[in-house]
Computed example of a mutant assay.
Amino acid sequence: MKTNGDEKETHLAETTATYALGVFCQLVNPYISGVDHHKKGFMKDFFDAVLEDDGLRNPLPQHHRNRKPGKTTITTGVWSGINDTDLTRFYNGRKKIPAWKAAEFYQRLDISKVERLCCDISIDALADFQKELIKANIRVTDISELPSATGKWLLSILQANAGGRDILIDGISFQPKFDIFENLPLASGRINNGKLHLGRSSVPWKAYPIPPDKPDDHLEKTYLTQMQAAYADHLHKPINCSDDLPQTCRPEYAKQREYFYDAEGMRRNLRDVIENGEQEFDALKVDLYDGICDTCASDYADGLLRMRATLSQAAGFPLSGSVIAQFPSMIKAAEKKGLCHMLVNDHMLEWVHENE
């Protein structure tokens, strides 16, 4: 069948297209230490290093679940469900990663990990990075800004791919972080349909992580140890994990982990979308601590009663220590209870004292 000139031109554009993820990987690869620099190896090592391992994996699409994996289908790791031969195509910029996988990566990306990997990029590379970053509406004038900008660049690539688009092919610009100290209508801010809205502006707001089946010791060990001690104090028996609890206590225990990850999800979003978001989050924790420390320090028959009373006080405490508190739909009772468990992680609260 013959094709007209327009169809031929479109076909040529498609076959010579360079997708943004490929440009990113090829530019960043030489400057990242501790990873395999071959194409497939880099794709596996780099994304394994920058994604949060918190159980927030999107399920495979229905047609993937219903079909038998092919000989080259990856069955484990961050690229599970993807054809192994496609990793080279992604790296070369000849193929866009599927929207379902991009959505998973977008949800799990930890920009701070990207920044740490990119901290050794030299001044000699600044001009090359500036050339590509400007296409994504990310401006860098100093080498010290480059690691953060590189993380933003990858986030914008994954966000576009999750929607079936590409920032280079479709000309999508990166949306900069909100500066919460500008005159923005914080009181009317809202979270809706996966976005944080302020006036006429909006930025993506990631879904909060789901607690993994196996607790993450790096994030959870301290507060879970204290919570287990509280249950042990209440039940008068050793509790070392949720399996040691009677069935009547397990829903409450699981709910506390959900509260913790609600607060952790809020922390990550604030870090990623609001200038000084991490500092403002810490200010919230300090404000909450001041409102609940006396409740926690009171006398109780056991540690579980202390925990329950403190969480109840936190849920109703009106936070005001940060401008973030002005967002009506961001900091609810669940997030406040999760902040309590973070304060336990910080050794500012404890349900069972060491000398008890």
Rank of each mutant, 00 (worst) to 15 (best):
S156F: 01
G22F: 02
D166N: 10
D179A: 06
N345K: 07
I32H: 02
I143Y: 09
N240H: 15
N4M: 06
A127L: 08
A160W: 01
L349Q: 04
T16S: 13
K68A: 15
V114D: 06
D120G: 03
K337E: 11
P69D: 13
E356K: 07
R116T: 04
G5A: 13
T76D: 15
Y289G: 01
K206M: 02
I123Q: 01
G55A: 04
I324S: 01
M227L: 14
E275L: 05
W205V: 01
I82A: 07
P215E: 10
D53L: 03
K177C: 10
L87H: 15
I123D: 08
D287R: 06
E356F: 05
K336S: 13
G55Q: 07
T16M: 05
F281M: 01
R190E: 14
A103K: 09
S312N: 12
Q326S: 12
Q62H: 04
S202P: 00
N161Y: 00
L284F: 06
H64W: 11
D142R: 07
A99E: 14
S188H: 04
G291H: 11
L12N: 11
L343M: 07
G70E: 14
T150E: 10
A17K: 10
G70R: 11
A49M: 07
G5T: 15
P61G: 11
H353I: 07
P215W: 05
L339G: 09
F129H: 09
G194L: 09
A187G: 10
R67H: 08
M348Y: 11
G171I: 03
D142S: 11
D53H: 09
V344W: 08
G291E: 09
G265T: 08
S329P: 10
Y231F: 12
V352G: 08
P251W: 07
I167T: 04
K101H: 09
I121H: 06
W205S: 01
G77K: 08
K177F: 03
F174V: 03
N58W: 00
